[in-house]
Design a protein around this nucleic acid. Sequence first.
DNA 1: CAATTGACGCCCA
DNA 2: TTGGGCGCCAATT
Length: 118
Amino acid sequence: MGPPDTLNMTKSNCYQEIFSVVSRIPKGRVATYGQVALLAGLPRKVRLVGYALSAVRNYLPIPWHRVVNAKGQISSRFEESPAEELQRLRLEDEGVIFDARDCIPLIHYQWHPEQKQR
DNA sequence: CAATTGACGCCCA
DNA sequence: TTGGGCGCCAATT
């Protein structure tokens, strides 16, 4: 079971695009699922983003924790998952502050890829 | 091959 | 303001 450093579980270009976008989110910033879908060129396939992220493995260098829903909250998994807690811890570790309603003020933390780094 | 399932987002009551 | 419902469509079973 060679731990692949490549996304060998990726079976489509959709996933590649999604992971590519997520990988560009800077530390300490967040992007919404809809935003990622848009940037990946998949305007209405918002749910596919969440689907793709669920396939991400821990050893893969993808900052999946920087993707939150449109309200700025950490999206609930199917069932209560430690991943949700981990996501919050990672974000706080990057300097993201949650408000009293467990929301991340997108007005302040949302990523704005002004110029595509090329 | 057909049905079900999502780590969502938007609309409307 | 908040909650419920529906649309999206690839992936999975």
